[in-house]
Design a protein around this nucleic acid. Structure first.
Length: 417
RNA sequence: GGAGAGGUGGCCGAGCCAGGUUGAAGGCGCUCCCCUGCUAAGGGAGUAAGGGGUUUAAAACCUCUUCGUGGGUUCAAAUCCCACCCUCUCCGCCA
């Protein structure tokens, strides 16, 4: 949720929202309806103050005067009720409009649609495709069984088997240890959450059709542990010197992938269920941009140590999504497709999410909304399939990345028979 | 799943049965001041959050909302009624 006051008073803030595609008409209408709302609020509150005073007066009044005073107060209540109805309408109008306004983009975000991204850094070479693409290789090695997954659960589900499981566990262990070393608190959150949590985390109503709904129990499967991590400090007020708070959540993630029929159908690139280590930071508003760079640095360090070729892009304003003021995507070179594909990303939501979560920071100049940031440390499934291509040898054998070897106890894995 | 108890300010905890000077006693903590050679102890004052308005250099002031959440009754609700959520204890079941 955005800051209406800033929208009204701060031209830069407004420009940032327009950069994200919010129309001038929408913004004008929001500001105007908020003005109306506030003047109605004053009227309602004045009436309410009168009614409160009248009620107190009755409590103190002599019994003989009570009846007349009660009658008068009763009339006042009717007037108040009518005004309240008008106010409620004005409030509803503002609520409806404000949810349509995205978090203003940071000044460093390139303006434009999806293709207007800015390449921040390119690491490694665009290596040639190995004999088998990730899907073929996963199947040949007996690591990924999408057919069985489809039989048991439907399309976009898979069984992960054999050494791939050991690789996954090693990846998670390695990444978690790294994050703990960076001051992150490890968390395994619930994967089922209530509706209000989905709303507060900013996923409902916009992404409702992407989320699995457990109707019977009124619970929803999270698409990322970000949802549950955001819930850890709802309504709290931090001391500024207690920040930043950094969490590393590990969970399975569930996505309906509605509207992606025919897209990325090979292997486990796009599946309904995958595991992910997610970073989440509660920051002092004054320091969130430093934290954002930290997230990028960690993501790059992970990619570097896994030996991937990749590039980092500064995502363009039109492709940011509502909550992010700025987002970096780390796209790994996928040789079989001859292109860079997104593996991790990190965003600064500034106060957009915290406003709904009501999470504040008490600092020297009073309280302010906290800033929240999140970033992928390791999307396990996609990392694995990138490893399948980067570490596949010409003879079909697989060399385990050095950093994972001591954890999973494997060095090379024999080619498929 | 069955039975019971309970959710009040940063924390503990009264108030609820008998609705009205209770935004909430008391205590702890915290802040400031006094006292004290240091420390400890003692004395005094202050101390909820959020929204809106007026004004200011800053402050101050007015007002609304909030006693788990959402409704209801009433001139008036922490207090009465309804629904929901959560926590705890006991029983049952169970990785």
């Amino acid at each position: 949720m955005i800051d209406i006051k800033a929208l009204k008073d701060n031209p830069e803030y407004r420009a940032g929202a327009e950069k994200k595609g919010a129309s001038a008409d929408l913004l004008d209408e929001l500001v105007a309806s908020d003005d109306t709302r506030r003047s109605l609020q004053t009227e309602v509150e004045t009436l309410r103050a009168e009614a409160n005073a009248a009620a107190k007066d009755i409590g103190k009044a002599d019994p003989s005067e009570r009846e007349a005073k009660i009658a008068a107060a009763s009339e006042l209540k009717k007037t108040l009720g009518a005004k309240e109805a008008v106010y409620a309408e004005a409030q509803a109008k503002v609520d409806e409009l404000i949810l349509q306004v995205p978090n203003p983009a940071h000044e460093s975000v390139p303006v434009g649609d999806e293709d207007a991204y800015e390449v921040v850094e390119v690491v490694g070479e665009q290596i040639a495709a190995p004999p088998m693409d990730h899907a073929e290789y996963g199947h040949a090695m007996g690591w990924v069984d999408t057919e069985l997954g489809a039989t048991v659960s439907g399309s976009r589900f898979a069984y992960l088997k054999g050494e791939a499981v050991l690789l996954e566990l090693a990846l998670v262990q390695w990444v978690m240890a790294k994050l703990v070393g960076r001051g992150f608190n490890p968390v395994i959150p619930p994967v089922l959450v209530r509706e209000d949590m989905m709303v507060d985390a900013g996923f409902f109503p916009t992404d409702r059709n992407q989320v699995y709904d457990i109707t019977e129990d009124e619970l929803f499967l999270i698409g990322t542990s970000e949802v549950a991590l955001a819930g850890m400090h709802r309504g709290e007020r931090f001391e500024a010197d207690g920040l930043p708070l950094r969490y590393a959540g590990f969970s399975s993630c569930f996505r309906r992938e509605a509207g992606t029929y025919g897209k990325d159908t090979r292997g486990i690139f796009r599946v309904h269920q995958f595991d992910k280590v997610e970073m989440f930071i509660w920051s002092d508003p004054a320091k969130s941009w430093e934290e954002h760079e930290l997230l990028r640095e960690i993501e790059q360090e992970i990619l570097n140590e896994l030996g991937f070729s990749y590039r980092v892009i500064n995502v363009a304003s039109g492709d940011l999504g509502d909550p992010a003021a700025k987002k970096y995507d780390c796209e790994v070179w996928l040789p079989s497709e001859g292109t860079y594909r997104e593996l991790t990303s990190c965003s600064n939501y500034t106060d957009y999410s915290a406003r709904r979560l009501k999470t504040r920071v008490k600092g020297e100049d009073g309280t302010a909304l906290a800033h929240t940031l999140n970033g992928t440390a390791c999307a396990v499934g996609r990392t694995l399939l990138n490893l399948f291509e980067h570490y596949q040898q010409p003879d079909g054998s697989f060399v385990v990345p050095e950093v994972l070897q001591p954890i999973c106890g494997l060095t090379t894995i024999a080619p498929p028979k």
